[in-house]
Design a protein around this nucleic acid. Structure first.
Lengths: 336, 336
DNA sequence: TAATGTGACTTAATCGATTAAGTTAACGGA
DNA sequence: TCCGTTAACTTAATCGATTAAGTCACATTA
């Protein structure tokens, strides 16, 4: 391994001078600096991030947290889009990313300890149980933290616009003439609550009644549970004309249930999803859904976090809401 | 930050003794060791991975490489399953994982340099253009490397069993009576070549003729291009009775094309996919496909890599082939 | 009794890079 | 000529942990 000492020897200067030359310090002469840089290049010198981190107390490494337990793991489309954009933006800004988990080999530690152990400069919490004391501890710690789809006091956060997303969907189906709109929602989280509230408020604004039995619980990303919820809705004496699903994958469960009942989409039942995963746009009929701005969310998360890391003095917590877009498929019939 | 020095002071011993006590060295008395461990716990001591890495020349950190350019990014189901299992197994064995990329901020470096810079103990190459000189350099370097779905000399590799996967599919549809089997394949890579070869060989073994026009190129994970390939197949005077798609997502493109022609699956055309993504199993009809053993592949990759890192002397390159399973849906009609 | 051994420490060097503080020679101005 | 200044270095401490080598008191053995 080529170190700063090798360059120093090769150039007949001290290690200090090499370090300064490579970092562009002012008190190295032009010629010496050039000579050092050339030698460094010719020897194939690479700085050692570890040594630098130890000395500087800055690792240029940020942790990302995807809690697997909540099922919001990396393999869900929405989260992998977020991960990918956090990664891309971080790299653009000169930071690597490392996963933060509970426990590591035989060491048992919580998220905060893990992040400390790896001396992460900051952490992006992308999917987690925000009630988990370990998450709360991390968010409340001195480590700069940005959360996605949840807000802690004193942490910046990036929020998908669930309020406006749900509103857009409701207004869209209302515009198509629907007045009996059912909503199958995922597990109760802050995201779900926002969508529920927005659903209710928008319906109220539009003068659309929302019978209690039109709101059915299910589990995100679980076609089976949405299928059951769909069945329950179909059993109602006063069936809805349109069903909003918790997400696109869940819609598939509903779809097969509708099929079983011999109901065609959108002729006999209108439906809409949420997320706008690529699949939704190649399905026939193309699914009407709301695509969250995951790419921008990830990028903004990285940007905010690194800003906080690099300018801790001027930093104040920020909440950024990222809008998505309504993907108007053809699963909502015009019954106006 | 609580360091080893704080513990040393609190216990009235030297830092060396603390380090030894915490690492279970034999030359520390029972009582002293206990006292040190208690003090460490009560002070909330956490080892500093950075300092340890610097001294030991071991970071307990492995790099993972998902080249974005090839489109085999993190967000594809197969790769995210691999990532997730590499992560889980690495963590179980006490290693963190960090993404390796080209370039980092204003530093331009190749993969090898990046891995060196972060002192990764090893690298898993999960998706990449294996012709890329930067990838070749990394694989040929002194850094332990495991590749997925590709073999380099002197590197261990984990291979999805494309040969047996394709064979299983062909034998399955053949068993259902199909004799005119078309195959839409993805871009020519080593994986694709294996599938193509296996397709041809199995057909030959079964005595099924394979007209050249039954083999159509397309692009992986791109429903549009598979749609076009499907259209070309349908235009043939002697239509196939069954189409094998490059992957499940691509099948969706074919599906909508079939729909346009008023052809029902599987009545008018049988189809099969590849990958076995969750979606494929909630679609109606349920897709016949081959699910690759991504979870085992990721876990084996991590295991092999860490084995090589920890026992470099006894190490020899290994190739492990991981079998998947045929998911027998109902998109293949029995026309026997 | 002297030599030898041993258990339980401490000392000090080391990993690679950074940086405050110190040194030295050259130069300018009075 | 002498002093102050400045450019261009070097010295040495430091980040936190590890470990080979050294020390020392005490026990054992011939």
């Amino acid at each position: 391994m080529v170190t700063i000492t090798d360059i120093a020897n090769a150039c007949g200067v001290s290690r200090a001078t090499v370090s300064k030359a490579l970092n562009g310090a002012p008190d190295v002469s032009r010629e010496t600096a050039d000579r050092i840089r050339e030698t460094a290049a010719s020897l194939g010198y690479l700085p050692n991030a570890t040594a630098r981190a130890l000395k500087l107390g800055r690792s240029y490494n940020i942790g990302v947290l995807f809690s697997d337990e909540t099922g919001g793991g990396i393999s869900h489309e929405y989260f992998s889009r977020i991960l990918e954009s956090v990664k891309a933006e971080s790299e653009r800004l000169g930071y690597d990313i490392t996963f933060i988990s509970k426990d590591l080999g035989r060491m048992s530690m919580d998220y905060y300890e893990h992040a400390k152990y790896r001396s992460c400069d900051g952490v992006v919490i992308a999917s987690a149980d925000f009630q988990d004391p370990a998450i709360v501890r991390l968010a409340a710690s001195e480590i700069p933290t940005v959360t996605l789809d949840y807000s802690f006091d004193n942490c910046s956060s990036i929020l998908s616009d669930n309020v406006r997303g749900m509103e857009a969907l409701v207004r869209f189906v209302h515009g198509k003439g629907h007045r009996r709109i059912a909503f199958i929602h995922g597990e109760i989280t802050s995201v779900t609550q926002k969508r529920l509230a927005s659903f209710r408020r928008t319906c109220a604004e539009l003068g659309v009644p929302v019978p209690a039995e039109y709101i059915r619980p299910a589990v995100y990303h679980d076609p089976r549970s949405s299928g059951l919820a769909t069945r329950a809705l179909l059993a109602l004496p006063d069936r809805p004309t349109c069903i909003l699903f918790p997400d696109d994958l869940s819609f598939l469960g509903g779809m097969s249930e509708l099929e079983k009942h011999g109901l065609a989409i959108p002729k006999d039942m209108s439906v809409a999803g949420y997320d706008g995963i690529p699949l939704s746009q190649v399905l026939r009929p193309r699914l009407t859904t709301y695509r969250q701005g995951a790419e921008r969310m990830g990028a903004e998360a990285a940007r905010l976090l690194i800003e906080q890391i690099e300018q801790p003095d001027t930093w104040i917590p920020q909440q950024i809401t990222v809008e998505g877009e309504l993907l108007e498929g053809n699963t909502v019939a015009d019954i106006g």
